[in-house]
Write a protein that binds this DNA or RNA. Structure first.
Length: 410
DNA sequence: TCTGGGGTCCTAGGACCC
DNA sequence: TCTGGGGTCCTAGGACCC
């Protein structure tokens, strides 16, 4: 039987913990990072029902003494990276899955640092002592189970699920602890009397697949019986790249579409070029007042990565989406996503302008130059630092492959 | 009194080809 | 004479995650 050598390390209420670290007056108090929407809540706020993603007004109603803080996004990036450096002291086999969590496979480091559980304890101690942050760790035989374990460990805890103890650990837990079970799936399972992971593991595959669709059902079934031994992936290429802007309520004039989609196209195309990629499918999403949204997509023959081409196609797609919904007078969000990514740059002739813009920006900053929509759009509703943090999160794929160029610890 | 920005994966239907 | 089966690609929408 496989040993429990997979760790999932997950910082607790990360943004909120950083704020409490930066301003000790906030310690022990319910705080939320964000404003219009809650990006993160401290455990004190969570106890009152404040969750990330809920609107600010609802959070205030749930928790009248809630303190909102603006957010120190560059500090989140710095501290998140510092935590990953600590993890890297224990193994090169790290899969960072967001700014504040990662999987580790420590099978090859046991002779250096002791049992996986000891490493987990040491990691927690070091992150607390050196960086001042609480972090929970789960240890198990598979990634998914380690993640369930870290969720159970929260806040500020350690849970080890030894080989052979998986069923006893999983069976009594509620299904929503499984990765991929959200409100809808939980509701569907609940209607069938399936509430615990044990219930799900005991249900026939046919029944689960009939309920959730074949792929989702099979996947969830595998998770429930811990039969999903996916390996640690130290680097991964992203499959799409996008950007979006919430707009408040706006009438979708041609001028608005050109300005906002020009801004978004510029952000996406710049990142595409920086990663030397281009994409064939462009998807535009338009959201209406009731939060319903529609998408229109087009796949082109030649991969594109120029700001101009992306902006033009995006405006066309947005017009198509709007034309199909003439009853909608106002829109609240625009988004662009580019997928079917491939290595490659645009032809020389088309690239010259973007190259020049990229070069000037590298020297003088983003606002120094750009197409009119970028320069004249003015400040958005969302701080650039937050966008950059989110972008960084989307580009976690490390270029360091432990399998090549790194001496095995064994 | 309606909510950010970045992603992943799945489903279903239709076009098209052999 | 009116119709099989399989595969691939594309589009639109939805659920979910951090």
């Amino acid at each position: 039987m496989a040993r429990a050598t997979i760790l999932h390390a997950d910082l607790d209420a990360f943004y909120a913990s950083v704020e409490q670290l930066l301003d000790p007056a906030l310690l022990g108090r319910p705080i939320a990072v964000g404003g219009g929407v809650v990006l993160a809540a401290s455990y004190e706020a969570k106890r009152a029902g404040v969750r990330s993603g809920i609107p600010g007004w609802r959070a205030r109603r749930l928790c009248p003494d809630l303190t909102f803080v603006g957010g120190h996004f560059s500090e989140y990036q710095r501290l998140g990276d510092a935590v990953m450096d600590v993890l890297g002291d224990y193994t090169p086999w790290i899969e960072r899955i967001s700014i504040d969590e990662a999987f580790l496979d420590v099978a090859g480091s046991v002779h250096l640092f002791g049992e996986p559980a000891e490493m987990a304890a040491a990691i927690r101690r070091r992150v607390r002592d050196e960086l001042g942050l609480p972090i929970s760790v789960g240890v198990a035989t598979t990634k998914h189970l380690a993640k369930v374990a870290s969720q159970v460990a929260k806040p500020d805890g350690l849970v080890v699920v030894d080989a052979g103890e998986e069923r006893a650990f999983l069976d009594p837990l509620p299904v929503e602890l499984l990765w991929g079970v959200g409100p809808k799936t939980r509701g569907r399972l609940d209607q069938q009397g399936i509430r615990t992971i044990g219930d799900l593991a005991a249900a026939s595959p046919e029944r689960v697949e009939a309920l959730l669709g074949s792929a989702t059902g099979a996947k969830l079934g595998a998770l429930a019986v811990n039969a999903d031994p996916r390996p640690i992936e130290t680097s991964r290429r992203s499959r799409s790249m996008g950007a979006q802007s919430a707009l408040g309520r706006r009438v979708p004039s041609t001028r608005l579409l050109r300005t906002e989609l020009g801004f978004l196209a510029d952000r996406v195309a710049t990142r595409l070029r920086a990663s030397r990629q281009a994409g064939r499918t462009v998807t535009v999403r338009v959201r209406f007042r009731d939060l319903r949204s529609v998408t229109r997509a087009e796949t082109v023959a030649e991969p594109l990565s120029t700001t101009h081409a992306l902006a033009d196609l995006s405006v066309r797609l947005a017009r198509k989406a709007l034309a199909d919904h003439p009853e909608e007078r106002e829109i609240t969000l625009l988004a662009i996503s580019v997928s079917k990514l491939a290595e490659g740059s645009p032809p020389e002739t088309l690239r010259a302008l973007d190259d020049a813009v990229d070069a000037v920006r590298a020297k003088f900053g983003r606002g120094a130059v750009g197409n009119a929509s970028v320069v004249f759009r003015g400040a958005g509703r969302v701080p650039d630092a937050f966008r950059e943090l989110a972008e960084a999160g989307a580009e976690l794929a490390g270029d360091e492959d432990p399998a090549s160029g790194h001496q095995s610890l064994d």
